[in-house]
Design a protein around this nucleic acid. Structure first.
Lengths: 148, 148
DNA sequence: ATGTGACTTGACGTTTACGTCAACCATTCC
DNA sequence: GGAATGGTTGACGTAAACGTCAAGTCACAT
């Protein structure tokens, strides 16, 4: 459906010319960031997004879009939606303020140590599995030798 | 739990002298492997374990205990209980047979590449987060400079 | 007028690996 | 005979992040 690896096809048409768009529909963002409509509504439910309503329809501002970017970034680095929400709420409270920056910075650093721990666990698992593979290979070789 | 001031049950090492135990209770295994009773019953439900029944009580043989070890190993390296079950079933089918060894070996190798992918993702996340930290630190320094 | 596409709000389902009661039984220690 | 210990079977609950209907609205092209 979504072929993300073909640059030349969609070019100058106003499809991805976001720069002069005054707002985005839910479908726009879904396509652009490759998330489902359901996910976007879910984020809204969780207080991560707050698009304007025009009738019943959602209109996402460029600011909403930026928030979504942050949400997806946060997810990618392992934060839960709850944690992301807390940090976003801080930004709402006092935009660009020192305290809020420090709080987020701390969270980032904590998350880095969490990730480092996970990385170590995975490395351990890889080495265990590799060792096991070696052993099993050895068994197979021995069976082959015995069969001869 | 151990004896206090009472009958001379055996002696100093009866606690972990598993070698002469004819069976294990659910509590024995729970303590030894640091899992809950609930977990052990759950594994049984999922067909991973099959302790003998003596009345209603579960008696785990040394073979059951070995299977549990494999289960926990499998979990540690990222297999789901379902995958672990499939592999254990193969062992039941033809114990120590070549075909089954090859199948497991393939699964192990697949899992290794899965883990390597996960490791890369985490490394990317760490580097992203680190970069973000640097940026935020920069912002804080600039704010501090401006305030002076 | 009608079909199509985009969108809406519920509301229940999914996955994985158990946790958390509740209520009960069987020994055994004192 | 009563508490402590260790076990039993249900059965519902939990977490996270959505998926998957169902049923309806709305604008617009045919």
């Amino acid at each position: 459906m979504n072929d993300r690896t073909n640059p030349p096809i969609v070019s100058a048409e106003e499809t991805d010319d976001t720069s002069n768009k005054t707002f985005f529909t839910i479908g726009d963002l879904a396509r652009e960031f490759d998330v489902t409509l359901r996910a976007l509504r879910f984020y809204e439910d969780k207080g991560l997004l707050n698009p304007r309503r025009v009738g019943t329809a959602r209109h996402y501002s460029r600011r909403d879009r930026a928030r979504l970017k942050l949400v997806l970034m946060g997810k990618r680095v392992g934060f839960t939606l709850g944690e992301i929400r807390e940090m976003l709420d801080l930004y709402e409270l006092r935009d660009g303020q020192e305290t809020q920056l420090r709080v987020s910075l701390d969270k980032f650093r904590e998350q880095i140590t969490v990730l480092q721990r996970q990385k170590q666990d995975i490395e351990q698992a890889i080495s265990d599995l590799t060792r096991t593979c070696d052993i099993v290979e050895g068994m197979l070789k021995q069976q082959a030798a015995q069969a001869s």
